[in-house]
Simulated assay, not measured.
Amino acid sequence: MVFKFTIDNVLNKYIPENKLKRLPPFIGRFLGAHSPSPRADYLIWLETLIGTFVGLSLLEGVFKSHTVFTKHNAPIIIASYGASAILCFNASQAPLAQPRSVFFGHFLSSLIGLCVQKLFSLSSGGRDHYWASGSLSVAIASVAMSICNCVHPPAGASALLPSIDDEIRSMSWWYLPVQIISSLLIISVACITGNIVRSYPVYWWTPAPLGKKVEPPKEDEKAENISHFSTDDAIEGITYIPNLTTIQISANEILVPEDLNINEIDVEWIDGLRLKLRKLPEQQSRSEV
């Protein structure tokens, strides 16, 4: 489902455009600022194997060691990061695996899960019904992640754990910094291993235009549509135009008919074409050299 409103409708015009291309190549490469060449499957499988092992081992190593979290009953690893590892190191090109979704998805869900569990803990009746606390936490987190455009499926477990796991519950508010550190560590490993043969992340905030409001099309033949255009119709780099009968893709924008029903898989595929168009001049200049 593609929502016509997310927090991006408000924030994107205040967020600066991606400047990673200006960094030295060695630094920029490990932040996803490069265009990888096609690679054999076995190299990608090897990268996935190494990245997943190193990422999870790093988390386990940090929390297995004696740290400030030890006396607060921090587990060796929060279980939801096993699923995050599959996304970050295997399906690294998917929107659900991008750093924004990983970090904010886990943190937002953990905060909601902890707050709902705390409310249920205020009474003996609530403590007898933590099953409802867990279900409510995941339900609220799911909607909140959609509004904040940071949907990350493993984060559902992060919302659930404070209600169903005694060890996590005993951590209380220390659960949040553990989530922050875990997310930052797994993203860091994904940036290192994921940029050896592939490119990660695909984007840091959104593939949509940043730093300014999305402008309507300027062509004369679209003049009738422009009068009906609203910047509230811009979603994830997709602009919905009334009365349009074609899908138009350029390096900077995607125009689709207002009444066309598209889902997240459609958006991912269409936006993949837009990103390829954006990288085309760079690939052509390299081929000329």
Rank of each mutant, 00 (worst) to 15 (best):
S170W: 03
G126R: 05
C115R: 00
Q179Y: 01
E258I: 00
P257G: 09
F30A: 02
S287N: 08
A91R: 00
N195K: 00
E219A: 11
L114I: 11
G55C: 04
L58P: 09
L111N: 04
D166Q: 01
W205G: 10
V102S: 04
H228V: 03
D8T: 11
Q98I: 11
L20G: 08
P25R: 00
G237E: 09
G126S: 07
R198F: 12
W131C: 07
V214W: 05
E258K: 00
S250L: 02
C115T: 13
Y42W: 14
S135Q: 02
T52L: 07
K118P: 05
E215K: 00
S172L: 05
T245H: 06
P177D: 08
D128Y: 01
L108C: 09
P257D: 07
W204C: 06
D8E: 13
L244C: 09
R169M: 15
G125V: 12
S188R: 01
S142W: 03
V267K: 04
S124N: 09
R39G: 14
L260A: 06
V68L: 10
L184I: 14
I44S: 10
V102R: 00
G28W: 02
S158V: 14
L111K: 00
G61S: 12
S227Y: 06
L87G: 13
A94I: 03
P75H: 10
N261Q: 10
A79K: 00
P75D: 14
W173T: 13
M1A: 13
K212T: 14
I249D: 15
L273R: 13
G55L: 02
I50E: 06
S183N: 05
V102T: 11
A97D: 14
V102F: 04
A223T: 15
S109E: 13
A157P: 04
E215F: 02
C115F: 07
Q93M: 07
